[in-house]
Amino acid sequence: MWFDKNVGYLANLQDLFTYDGSIYLHWIGNSALYAVAGGVGSTIVSILAGYGFAKFAFRGRNLMFSLLLGAVMVPLTALVIPTFILASDAGLTNTIWAVILPSLLNPFGVYLMRVYIGDAVPDELLDAARVDGAGELRTFLQVALPLMRPAIVTVLLLSMVATWNNYFLPLVMLSDKTLYPVTVGIGVWQGLASGNNGGGHSLWSLIVMGSLISVVPLVIAFLTLQRYWRGGLSIGSLK
């Protein structure tokens, strides 16, 4: 890099993938796991709740939805410290669940799904299916779900990005470095490098290389899926 010109990119790359028992690959793998598990999980939760809010005029709905809108405004990072204490009491700190489970909470995703389903899934269609004898679950899975695709992709992508980019939560929850996502791992490298403590190994080139590579998966995801999310992003604002 600017101060390490002699070393070739390929050598750096090889160094990155083998340093400290290939810890970097571990981190990328962890990030992928957290992003997929947290993203898919919170999307499923959001779809179900969005559908429930949009299509069932049940008692308690308005109260629950106002609470949800209030939740959009609660500083989620301010929840991290009490969540840490609770997770620690439950013995969950320093496990993957301490990162995955809290990321299931995605009030904004529910909000987006509700607004979208309200517009894109006509009541008449659902009623027709019910009249034909389809149960609630089948109506949901076979009639409503296919109509939600753009919103699902958007919510999925947004929540995966949020989990992939998450730093505060895993930073606080995890102390075993083999569980770190790539964001926390590189942050730790930065701390070690600033303290000149790579044990004789210059970490700066690893940090630069590792940062660049960690960006690639999301960039690819955004580029390939842009047809879906570009439309989906306007859901919350057009109403």
């Binding site: 939760v45 969950l92 149960g135 679950l137």
Partner: peptide, 27 residues
């Protein structure tokens, strides 16, 4: 009809509980 509603809800519950249950193994 009622039974089906129940199944729909239960499916949702299982999804959530499944995730929560796995968490026990991490300790």
């Amino acid at each position: 009809m009622k039974k089906r509603a129940l199944i729909a809800g239960l499916t949702a519950l299982v999804m959530a509980a499944g995730l929560a249950a796995c968490s026990g193994g991490g300790g």
